[in-house]
């Protein structure tokens, strides 16, 4: 009972804190820094969700932009195409008021997450047979299929993309609230998975799949679950990003984006949630900080990446976490992992 009460209080505190922070920051912060902060948030969700698949379960997916795109386009399709069709019959769906905007955003989020999760299920299934490089190629292929499909579907604008998406998440200055709510959800979800018994089975799949199988772990279920949860979170990031940018086109979800997200996970240390968060922030903020270098910017950026990988091949954090161990009620034995 006490724990339940504490939980409720903690969630309430998080909500109110985020709400106040979001109001405060939106009024006080320079718009450019604000934009970079939002972008950091979106990429933290993406990196942490890919870390679930790549880092914790040890699968090698390099097609995360595909799930990101599915979420973004399905979410935008709701607010731009489907909502206007049904709003006549269900007037409570009307946008423009705060509660109307929040309701529509929630519907977009649910639709985006379900469809991205379904896509994750479809991609997760071949991972029964494919391992390592082969799975990587399959996921890359999936992301390319999504990219080419989006280019060719006329109702979502083809190469020009969808423009004029209502800025639902900025309604009531809540942009930061929504983005960081999902940042917290993805971090807490990762942490809870890693520290639960169920999470140990995920880790076991990463460490030695055959041994895990022999011990009675349903490796197929583990892998597919990781894919579904990871891609649903990426879908949520897509919905939020689409409604922040107000315009999306397939270019945003090209292979470069997939590679960027994978780089974040690897740079931060595969398996480390803290690492993913830090690396995502660094990889978004660094190019902005280097803008004074003009044309040499991307060269310096790449050199910095190479230096970071050479000096710490296991990633910034390896498999370590900051803050997590103190919370553990039971210490799971995680020694003896191979990097």
């Amino acid at each position: 009972m006490r724990i339940l009460l504490l939980r409720v209080i903690a969630i309430l505190v998080t909500f109110i804190g985020l709400y106040m922070l979001s109001q405060f920051v939106t009024y006080q912060m320079d718009p450019y820094y604000f934009q970079v902060l939002i972008e950091c948030g979106v990429y933290i969700i993406l990196a942490v969700s890919l870390n679930l698949i790549n880092g914790i379960t040890g699968q090698f997916s390099i097609g995360h932009a595909g799930f990101f795109a599915v979420g973004a386009y399905v979410g935008a399709a709701w607010t731009m195409i489907w909502q206007p069709m049904v709003v006549g019959r269900y007037s409570f769906l009307q946008m423009g008021t705060l509660h109307g905007d929040i309701l529509n955003l929630l519907i977009a989020l649910v639709l985006g997450m379900i469809s991205a999760g379904m896509a994750g299920f479809v991609v997760g299934l071949p991972s029964l047979r494919l391992r390592g490089d082969y799975l990587a190629i399959a996921t890359l292929g999936f992301a390319e299929v999504i990219y080419v499909l989006l280019l060719n579907i006329n109702s979502v604008g083809g190469a020009r993309g969808l423009n004029g998406i209502p800025t639902l998440i900025s309604s009531g200055n809540l942009a930061l609230f929504w983005i960081f709510l999902f940042v917290i959800i993805s971090i807490v979800l990762s942490r809870n998975i890693m520290q639960s018994v169920r999470g140990l089975t995920w880790l076991s799949v990463r460490e030695d799949e055959i041994a895990a199988d022999a011990m009675g772990v349903d490796t197929t279920k583990v892998k597919v679950t990781a894919f579904v949860i990871g891609s649903a979170l990426a879908g949520a990031a897509g919905v939020l990003y689409a409604h922040f940018l107000t315009g999306i086109s397939p270019d945003i979800f090209s292979m470069n984006t997939s590679i960027l997200i994978t780089t974040m996970v690897v740079l931060g240390g595969s398996g480390s949630v803290t690492g993913s968060v830090i690396a995502a922030t660094v990889l978004i903020v660094l190019p902005e900080m280097l803008r004074f270098l003009k044309n040499d910017r991307m060269v310096i950026y790449s050199v910095l990446l190479i230096v970071m990988m050479l000096t710490r091949p296991q990633g910034i954090f390896g498999t370590k976490e900051i803050g997590f161990p103190k919370w553990r009620r039971k210490q799971p034995k995680t020694e003896g992992r191979s990097a």
Partner: peptide, 16 residues
């Protein structure tokens, strides 16, 4: 459950 509070405090701090 102290952890959650710390998480919240940490995020608020970083945000500030």
């Amino acid at each position: 459950m102290k952890g959650i509070h710390r998480l919240v405090a940490g995020i608020l701090g970083v945000g500030l």
